[in-house]
């Protein structure tokens, strides 16, 4: 039987080869063929999840909620020290100095990354802005969000914090952070589907030992991770509860 692994579509493009290397490592650990299925967007990935075509997933926190509560997935591990935070940025010469300066009617560049959008909208509340009082410019990537700001097409942009920090130094210099979230508990999680109960323990042990193993450390390096931390069901339930409070 071939297992299907998939990765949240918001992974950094320069980590693509890293996920293929992880896929090979995973197949060796489980002594089972593993197929890495990558999707262009969240909608396509959710359709695959709904059709039960996913066995192992490195999931966006927003989707982790659905996977745990509706599909019976179990969290295994999360990357060490990689909490997901959001940034609202403007063009460097913008007159706006803080979120509260933003005005109704502003055009905001954003991606389809659901948790980044949710965290960013939460940070706009203090400016009395909501979905009803702003307009969105949908972008396919964070690089395009930056371009929309630099071209003046959008007045503000929502970024995954790590993606903002990963922009080229030249681009970052032409942008300015208005606000950066410090939530600390929202994070991507590696989960296994209900059919993998028998291999869960074996997989978790292998993941937690990766950093101590030469080959495993190399795989982690290709993903940009220092290691994995174990995640208990209750840790993920807590994150889901917290995100539920942030949803409007």
């Amino acid at each position: 039987m071939t297992l299907n692994l998939t990765v949240s579509p918001d992974f950094a493009p320069d980590r693509l080869s890293g996920w293929y290397i992880f896929n090979t490592w995973l197949a060796r650990q489980l002594d089972t063929p593993v197929h890495l299925a990558l999707y262009d967007d969240f909608a396509a990935q959710r359709a695959a999840i709904a059709a039960d075509q996913v066995d192992i997933i490195y999931a966006n926190p927003f989707d982790a909620a659905m996977l745990v509560r509706e599909k019976g997935f179990v969290p295994l591990a999360r990357p060490d020290g990689q909490c997901d935070e959001a940034v609202i940025a403007v063009e460097a010469a913008s007159p706006w100095q803080c979120v509260e300066d933003l005005q109704p009617g502003i055009r905001i560049a954003t991606t389809d990354d659901p948790h980044v959008h949710m965290m960013s909208m939460m940070m706009l509340e203090s400016a009395d802005l909501s979905q009803e009082t702003v307009t969105f410019d949908a972008c396919d990537s964070y690089v395009l969000v930056a371009k929309a700001l630099l071209s003046g097409q959008a007045g503000a942009g929502f970024f995954l914090s790590a993606a903002f920090d990963g922009l080229s130094p030249v681009t970052r210099k032409r942008l300015r952070v208005l606000i950066r979230s410090q939530i600390s508990v929202i994070e991507h999680v590696l989960l296994t589907g209900p059919g993998l109960g028998g291999q869960r323990q074996q997989l978790q042990s292998a993941l937690l030992g990766m950093a101590q193993d030469t080959k495993g450390a190399g795989v982690l390096g290709s993903l940009g991770f220092d290691g994995w931390q174990p995640v208990e069901q209750e840790d993920t339930e807590f994150m889901i509860d917290l995100m539920e409070t942030l949803a409007s």
């Binding site: 509260e100 939460m122 940070m123 509340e125 203090s126 400016a127 009395d128 339930e237 807590f238 509860d241 917290l242 539920e244 409070t245 942030l246």
Partner: peptide, 27 residues
């Protein structure tokens, strides 16, 4: 600006989570 929800585990309320965020000055 506070939001409070019940923590449901296996269909039972085991507690409550309260999350507060920065409110709008007007509100």
């Amino acid at each position: 600006y506070a939001t409070v929800i019940a923590n449901l585990r296996h269909g039972e309320v085991v507690g409550y989570t309260s999350v507060r965020r920065k409110p709008s000055r007007r509100r």
